Simulated scan of single mutants.
Amino acid sequence: MKKSAGDRIFDIINVLIMLCLVLITLYPMYYVLCASVSSNTYLVAHPGVLFWPHDFTLGAYKMTFQHPLILSGYRNTLIILAGSLPLNIVMTLFCGYFMASKNVLFKKYIIFYLMLTMFFSGGLIPAYLNQRSLGLYNNLLALIIPGAVSLYNAIICRTAISGIPDSLVESAYIDGANDMVILFRIIAPLIMPTTAVLLLYYGVGHWNSWFSASIYIEDNNLLPLQNILRALLIANSDILGGGESVGDEYNSYAETIKYAAIIVTTVPVLCIYPFLQKYFVKGVMIGAVKG
């Protein structure tokens, strides 16, 4: 069909708006990348727009990877991910399977109680006192155990499980399978796209989390990576420059190391996301259309 002049003008305006949105979205990332490899002296003397690196140097990245707190932050974050993700997925599968099961005693009341926790909580002070009484204060377990399951993610899992035909589960029962066998050998393989989305949700959540560590972790060597980054960027802390081993050399990269730290903490998620994008789209669409 031949487009009218009005249609062509509308398309041009749409393209221009989209290009502006792309520029607004990508330029901050491009600026951070350019600033991380530019001279510290130039950034301090010329704040504002930056279109290309000036006095190219990788010194900020060298300082970032050499500092023990950055390395310990990476280590702690990876430990949290390794301990949390298997626990998150198993607990979410249990909760989703329960909510999707039929003919469960008191199921309606239990689900109501679970839903209540999405709107009301005990508060920060009781949670803090509970962590201390359990001996989890200043321990990485305080960042793993309390967030073992997200009810929102469990609802997504429940929706995926509900899409599996009841006849498949009933035939497994007839063959002598129990609930554990049905869950992990029949249902879990059938909802792998949803599981991949939940892994992405949980993984990004743990990677970006900083508040819980700021409450429950006292030792700097146990802080996750995002808390180190926050201390560097927002709190204006000298946490990275406190050691004598870095001292003056750190000060010579005081500005550019902030941008290098942003790149270092962001790139891993950017590298993983493309591999899970197709599953992410499926997960977002779960429950969007009700048949």
Rank of each mutant, 00 (worst) to 15 (best):
residue 206 H to T: 09
residue 268 P to I: 06
residue 112 F to M: 15
residue 118 M to P: 10
residue 147 G to M: 07
residue 224 P to V: 14
residue 24 I to F: 14
residue 97 Y to R: 13
residue 33 L to V: 14
residue 256 T to R: 00
residue 269 V to R: 07
residue 7 D to E: 15
residue 149 V to P: 05
residue 190 L to Y: 03
residue 134 L to K: 12
residue 79 I to V: 06
residue 61 Y to I: 08
residue 127 A to V: 05
residue 272 I to E: 02
residue 280 F to Y: 01
residue 153 N to F: 08
residue 168 L to C: 00
residue 12 I to K: 04
residue 213 A to V: 03
residue 162 S to Y: 04
residue 29 M to N: 07
residue 285 M to S: 09
residue 13 I to W: 07
residue 63 M to K: 06
residue 268 P to Y: 09
residue 177 A to V: 00
residue 208 N to T: 09
residue 291 G to A: 07
residue 243 G to T: 06
residue 182 I to N: 03
residue 239 I to D: 03
residue 173 Y to F: 14
residue 105 L to A: 15
residue 227 N to S: 09
residue 240 L to F: 04
residue 62 K to H: 14
residue 242 G to K: 03
residue 229 L to S: 01
residue 208 N to K: 11
residue 188 A to N: 02
residue 72 S to I: 01
residue 290 K to F: 15
residue 107 K to F: 08
residue 175 D to W: 09
residue 275 F to W: 12
residue 246 V to K: 02
residue 196 A to E: 01
residue 229 L to P: 02
residue 99 M to D: 03
residue 158 R to S: 15
residue 178 N to L: 12
residue 93 L to Q: 05
residue 155 I to E: 00
residue 128 Y to G: 01
residue 146 P to Q: 01
residue 111 I to G: 00
residue 183 L to H: 10
residue 66 Q to K: 13
residue 53 P to I: 12
residue 38 S to T: 00
residue 222 L to M: 14
residue 31 Y to H: 09
residue 231 A to W: 10
residue 16 L to C: 13
residue 164 I to Q: 01
residue 281 V to A: 04
residue 123 G to H: 05
residue 95 C to F: 11
residue 238 D to Q: 13
residue 221 N to Q: 11
residue 44 V to I: 15
residue 139 N to Q: 07
residue 277 Q to E: 02
residue 95 C to I: 09
residue 196 A to N: 04
residue 101 S to G: 00
residue 86 P to D: 09
residue 66 Q to M: 15
residue 210 W to P: 03
residue 129 L to Q: 05
residue 141 L to W: 11
residue 166 D to H: 11
residue 87 L to R: 07
residue 36 S to A: 13
residue 97 Y to H: 06
residue 276 L to C: 05
residue 218 E to F: 07
residue 199 L to V: 14
residue 143 L to K: 00
residue 21 L to F: 15
residue 25 T to F: 12
residue 237 S to Y: 07
residue 231 A to K: 02
residue 45 A to Y: 11
residue 192 M to I: 12
residue 114 L to P: 00
residue 42 Y to T: 00
residue 85 L to F: 00
residue 94 F to A: 05
residue 148 A to V: 10
residue 263 I to S: 11
residue 286 I to G: 10
residue 216 Y to V: 08
residue 97 Y to F: 15
residue 83 G to H: 04
residue 183 L to S: 10
residue 276 L to I: 14
residue 290 K to H: 13
residue 183 L to R: 10
residue 79 I to W: 01
residue 80 I to T: 00
residue 139 N to H: 11
residue 68 P to G: 04
residue 193 P to Q: 00
residue 81 L to H: 07
residue 28 P to C: 12
residue 73 G to C: 03
residue 12 I to V: 04
residue 87 L to N: 02
residue 238 D to G: 14
residue 235 A to Y: 10
residue 25 T to S: 15
residue 188 A to S: 08
residue 12 I to Y: 11
residue 125 I to T: 15
residue 86 P to G: 05
residue 10 F to Y: 13
